[in-house]
């Protein structure tokens, strides 16, 4: 796949503190890249740099193999960004959606373009007459997305697009961005804490931690704060009340990772020095390795990605929505710096 965006030796600092350090990251044309990682890991900063909203302190952003900077002619009209905090201009919905078209010099068929953009996000064309102050949070988020889709961007960066919207709005947003890729080949980079939503929509997930890319093989990031359970074990309580065990972390707030290969999945818990947590299967996907599968399991608010050999999968008879047990050794959790 041809690369449309590339971050090369990019380092970004705020007040001398490095918040992003990416040696090299390529994003393929028409792909959907998910950005995962805890708060403060540099996801929003990366999206701002990719969409030319911010200039990186060091390094180069390439768009279609050309180095670009903010306000670059041409590129700034092809890349766009939907921030987490939606801002609508104090005007009508029509004016908000047509703004991007007007600043690109488009004067014809504005009404048609606005109506199409509204339809993409699941809103009727009558919304165009409404004032910005007459919209709910979810509607405002969809109007803001429609304003980005109206310009038919080559690349669309979305920062937590589903964080403050209801399920229906989240579905509409998902549908709209998939349509954008299908219709115009838009490349999408999406950050989200909603792991299952992100896994579902993305072709590839990039993990960030403390501004650095994480080894793709880890995938399961376990966030603190950790509490002491015994001399050797520390725990974090998940939203469903289950305890996740780990060896002593460097700090109570440390984050750890565990590779999918280090977790075993079965229909019943196993006993011994290993620990178990139960969850539900949310997805079964093909893995890069043809001999194994990738299973997504949700335990409370934590999603785990587990690898299982195809023959073991057949024996275990794992199905979607099935309650399963994940077995792991707390010592396999690797602490991040």
């Amino acid at each position: 796949m041809e690369d449309i965006l590339r971050l090369h030796k990019v380092r970004h600092q705020y007040n001398g503190r490095t918040v992003l350090d990416i040696p090299d990251l390529k994003i393929g044309r028409g792909s959907i890249v998910g950005l995962a990682g805890p708060n403060g890991s540099g996801k929003s900063t990366m999206l701002k740099i990719l969409s030319l909203v911010e200039k990186c302190s060091h390094g180069t952003l390439f768009f279609e193999n050309k180095a670009i900077t903010p306000f670059a002619k041409g590129a700034r009209h092809l890349l766009t960004f939907l921030p987490q905090e939606t801002y609508l201009l104090k005007r009508s919905v029509f004016d908000n959606i047509s703004y991007g078209l007007k600043i690109r010099g488009q004067k014809k068929e504005l009404s048609l373009c606005v109506a199409q953009a509204l339809e993409l996000v699941g809103l009727s064309s009558s919304f165009a007459e409404r004032q910005w102050s007459e919209l709910s949070g979810g509607e405002a988020q969809r109007v803001a997305l429609a304003a980005r889709l109206a310009i038919k961007p080559a690349c669309l960066m979305l920062d937590e697009p589903t964080v403050s919207v209801d399920m229906e709005s989240a579905r509409n947003i998902r549908r709209a961005i998939l349509l954008a890729r299908q219709e115009w080949g838009t490349t999408l980079v999406i950050s989200s804490h909603h792991q299952s939503w992100l896994n579902d929509i993305s072709d590839r997930i990039v993990y960030l931690y403390n501004g650095r890319l994480l080894d793709y093989s880890y995938k399961n990031v376990l966030l603190g704060p950790w509490e002491k359970f015994s001399d050797e074990l520390f725990v974090v309580k998940m939203t469903d009340g289950q305890l996740l065990y780990a060896s002593k972390p460097p700090k109570a707030g440390s984050s750890g990772v565990i590779a999918p290969k280090d977790i075993r999945i079965s229909s019943s818990p196993s006993f011994g020095n290993e620990k178990n947590i139960s969850g539900f299967v949310t997805g079964i996907f093909a893995d890069n390795n043809p001999d194994s599968l990738c299973i997504h399991v949700v335990c409370g608010d934590q999603q785990f990605i587990v690898n299982i050999a195809v023959h073991a999968f057949q024996i275990a008879e794992i199905r979607p929505n099935q309650k399963v047990s994940l077995t792991y050794n707390p010592k396999d959790i690797v602490w991040l710096a």
């Binding site: 701002k48 969409s51 030319l52 909203v53 903010p70 306000f71 700034r76 009209h77 890349l79 766009t80 960004f81 939907l82 921030p83 905090e85 939606t86 801002y87 201009l89 703004y99 991007g100 600043i103 690109r104 803001a144 304003a147 980005r148 310009i151």
Partner: peptide, 15 residues
């Protein structure tokens, strides 16, 4: 709102 500037830049506005 500080997000205004970010929004306008993200939509491709010139200075």
């Amino acid at each position: 709102d500080r997000v205004l500037r970010l929004t306008l830049k993200s939509l491709g506005a010139s200075p």
